[in-house]
Design a protein around this nucleic acid. Structure first.
Length: 511
DNA sequence: CACTAGTGCAA
DNA sequence: TATTGCACTAGTG
């Protein structure tokens, strides 16, 4: 099966191995232990990506030739054999690596969270998610006719035919032929990104049409047309890879296909989610943590207003608006709430007045006033940020609540921009990473309960603060309770963790 | 086929 | 001059 895929291409060992495993499982074969070991072993190389030294040790021990030889192994069986031998070799590293884990204070995180999670993720990947091929194919036709129409309109506005998908050709049309003002530069020429095109829309018809074209063509090529081709013929489902050792903060990443960036914001985007369906007799259950990063920040900063606000179950963005604008909560308009929401996110990312002003379309001066006002009211957050940066500079790293460690070498550099980047990283990582710790632990606990209570429900996706399940109708009520209980009760913070649950025939309805 | 640049989707 | 990702197309070698 795999052999034919390999001719003249780079082998993706993990991915092709997984196809084998899915097939074997379908056939009722117990998964060969060496295969599972391979996954564990590959994880042992690099349990936490920030631990660069672990990677260095593994590379030194195994040498680069492992990777090189793997890509040279064409035959399916010998490739699996080879990987298994590699796994053995990797296990010899265990002693060195466990010493490192101990020295870095990462043992608990590794053995209680990351290792148990390996099996959970493997299950989620194997379960896969059902995708409605016919539905997407139908949508593809519709979008295609819209695109055709847009295309001829664009050509006539431009006075010529060209490849709209080529930023290079597009910038020739916009900035040379039509002589529109160039607003922003890239490394290689003038930018044609959404921000530029929006501004140009005010003076010419063409840019707005391009924007619509871009949106449609993006959704069509990345999701509508590509997802059906990712459906595994053996299972009729899509099996993503949930990568455990990729991100710097401890989040998972998803690839082949990436199911963590399925659209939701636009109308058409939401329709794409309708293609993620449950088998007849089943339902999709989606459970997401409400404002988990702000709650984590409340916990870590111990800010009294944030804590009180979450304890009372207030609308957190509305409360921020009331604080920042200095008005009674009852007088907060939806526009003010929207701005406060942007401010709240900005705080977590370490946004500057410049960035905030750009995002809200206000002056930098006003943006600075909002930020100052925020820190004036949320003194705990302000001192948390200062303290975190200071400590990161002293130690050279930051940690999440469960001890996950990220070195921040940028902080000791001499370039100002780089150092500032390090400061934002120092603040953001403990927050984003703690949220990741929390949901990982919840996944493990839910998985245990599913097994213990012999439930047929399947965990099928994780999207950073959301877990998605496929649930037999008869298990719906018990699952709602179970998932909520495990996610909210996974650990005790200074503020409650809140989970919102939705149910539907598909992923869109479940939101 | 492998790689980079520009762009844009998600939390 | 906002955090973390993945992947598409065009273009080059």
């Amino acid at each position: 099966m795999v052999g034919s895929l390999l001719e003249g291409k780079t082998v993706k060992v993990g991915h092709d191995l997984k196809k084998e495993m899915i097939l074997l499982k379908k056939q009722g074969v117990e998964l060969a232990e060496p295969m599972f070991d391979t996954m564990v072993a590959s994880y042992l190389i690099n349990p936490v990506r920030s631990e660069q030294t672990l990677e260095a040790i593994a590379l030194e021990f195994l040498g680069k030739n492992v990777i090189e030889q793997l890509s040279g192994v064409r035959d399916e069986k010998s490739r699996i054999d080879y990987v298994c031998h590699a796994a053995e070799a990797i296990f010899e590293l265990k002693e060195i690596l466990s010493g490192r884990l101990r020295d870095e204070g990462l043992e608990e995180l590794f053995y209680n969270v990351e290792m148990p999670l390996v099996r959970v993720l493997s299950d989620v990947e194997m379960n896969g998610v059902r995708v409605d091929r016919d539905f997407l194919n139908e949508m593809s036709k519709e979008v295609d006719s819209d695109l055709q129409e847009l295309m001829s309109k664009i050509y006539s506005l431009a006075g010529q035919e060209f490849n709209i998908n080529s930023p290079k050709q597009l910038s020739e049309v916009l900035f040379e032929k039509l002589k529109l003002p160039a607003i922003k530069k890239t490394k290689t020429g003038y930018s044609t990104d959404v921000e530029v095109l929006q501004q140009l829309s005010a003076i010419h018809e063409l840019p707005a049409e391009i924007l619509t074209y871009r949106t449609l063509s993006k959704l069509k090529s990345t999701y509508i047309d590509s997802l059906p081709s990712m459906i595994n013929p053996e299972t009729g489902r899509v099996h993503t890879s949930l990568n455990q050792t990729v991100t710097a903060t401890g989040r998972l990443s998803s690839s082949e296909p990436n199911l963590q960036n399925i659209p939701i914001r636009t109308e058409l985007g939401r329709r794409i989610r309708e293609a993620f369906t449950a088998e007849p007799g089943n339902l999709i259950l989606s459970a997401d943590y409400s404002q988990i990063e702000l709650r984590v920040m409340a916990h870590m900063s111990e800010d009294p207003i944030l804590i009180e606000s979450f304890k009372k179950g207030e609308d957190i963005h509305a409360r921020t608006a009331a604080e920042v604008f200095g008005i009674m909560p009852g007088l907060v308009t939806s526009e003010m709430r929207r701005m406060a929401k942007v401010v709240n996110f900005g705080i977590i990312y370490g946004m500057s007045p410049f960035g905030l002003s750009k995002d809200l379309g206000i002056s930098q001066k006003d943006a600075k006033r909002y930020i100052d006002s925020y820190f004036e009211h949320y003194k705990g957050v302000s001192s948390f940020i200062e303290k975190t940066i200071l400590e990161a500079k002293e130690k050279g790293y930051v940690r999440t609540l469960l001890g996950r460690k990220r070195p921040i070498p940028e902080l000791s550099g001499k370039e100002v921009a780089l150092r500032q980047f390090g400061e934002r990283t120092a603040v953001n990582t403990p927050i984003q990473g703690t949220a990741a710790d929390i949901i990982k632990l919840a996944m493990i606990n839910i998985s245990k309960r599913l097994k213990k209570e012999d439930l047929k429900s399947l965990m099928i996706l994780q999207v950073h603060d959301e877990l998605v399940f496929e649930v037999p109708e008869g298990e719906l009520e018990i699952m709602k309770l179970l998932v909520c209980e495990e996610m909210e009760g996974v650990m005790e913070l200074k503020v409650p963790l809140k989970v919102d649950i939705g149910v539907g025939k598909n992923w869109s309805e479940a939101h």
